[in-house]
């Protein structure tokens, strides 16, 4: 069985929506920066040189230096890596926990379904950032706990989305046919349901990725996220706060990095949805 998904999905990809192009471009830029930081940064991102602090952008330090004399460009590049790593881990954790749960709920019938839905409601009652603040306050600040907190929230979102999409698939004829042929629920879930909800899950993943990047920045800004000396965009913003009057550029660069990343991921998500989901084909942002 090659999935019916291809009929609806792959053809659409050929007509690339503008949001997909722009989103992909911005996301590629950020991913490129993160990859670049693995092999090269203009200066070591953690190198402190107080005598060279608060330099404006110039030929040596392209984006200037911060209050400890660290090279801002290097910090932005490594910060991209840190942001994406936390975002990706939070999304992966959410998907690994949430998608099977959502699929199981759709297959289990009423009681299991109710249980998963109520559990999701419980998690949704707390905003993700608040959950993360509570968790980091209890377990201590740091990237791992941020991933845990955001991942938990993401799991609830994934479970809800996967369940909703899967319920629709279960009612379709080819699934009923498979069941009638004597396939078990596990086999039907893996062979028919999962491939058909993959598009929705991927779109949701990119959106949650953007939210995770934003939340990680917010937590690092509050001092709860990625810990120094490892650079993070949120921490850079927090540090820049007292320099707003004297060196406003300190806030602009990490702020722009966050905006570009989140915007790029959101546009990418929108574009992917347009491409993968026939019901949304006409509406384009740009």
């Amino acid at each position: 069985m090659t999935g019916p998904m291809k009929i609806g999905g792959m053809r659409r990809l050929k007509r690339l929506p503008v949001s997909l192009l722009l989103g992909g471009l911005l996301t590629a830029l950020v991913v490129g920066a993160a990859l670049l930081s693995l092999v090269w940064t203009p200066f070591p991102a953690e190198q402190v040189r107080v005598v060279a602090r608060l330099r404006p952008p110039g030929p040596v330090h392209w984006l200037g230096t911060d209050h400890f004399g660290r090279d801002v460009l290097s910090m932005i590049l490594v910060g991209a890596r840190n942001s994406l790593a936390v975002g990706a881990a939070a999304v992966a954790l959410g998907a690994v926990l949430g998608v099977p749960l959502g699929l199981a709920a759709s297959a289990w019938g009423r009681w299991g379904d109710e249980a998963v839905a109520r559990l999701g409601d419980l998690l949704f009652a707390f905003p993700a950032v608040l959950t993360a603040i509570l968790l980091t306050a209890a377990l201590g600040a740091g990237a791992v706990n941020v991933v845990l907190a955001l991942g938990l929230f993401n799991a609830a979102v994934f479970a809800r989305v996967a369940r909703g999409a899967a319920l629709a698939v279960w009612r379709r004829d080819f699934v009923r046919a498979a069941l009638a042929l004597g396939r078990g629920p596990l086999s039907v879930t893996l062979v028919h349901v999962l491939p058909n909800i993959a598009g929705v899950v991927i779109v949701q993943g990119t959106v949650l990725f953007a939210v995770a990047v934003l939340n990680e920045a917010a937590l690092s800004y509050l001092g709860l996220g990625i810990q120094p000396p490892s650079p993070s965009w949120g921490k850079m913003l927090g540090d820049a706060q007292t320099f707003l009057f004297t060196s406003p550029l300190q806030a602009i660069f990490p702020g722009a990095a966050i905006a570009v990343t989140v915007l790029g991921l959101n546009l990418l998500g929108d574009g992917l949805r347009d491409a993968l989901d026939p019901r949304h084909r006409s509406a384009g942002l740009l």
Binding site: L214, G234, L244, A251, G255, A256, V262
Partner: peptide, 13 residues
């Protein structure tokens, strides 16, 4: 996305 980025980065400035 735009608003949050702006709030984090530029509001103070």
């Amino acid at each position: 996305a735009i608003t949050m980025g702006a709030v984090l980065g530029l509001a103070g400035a």
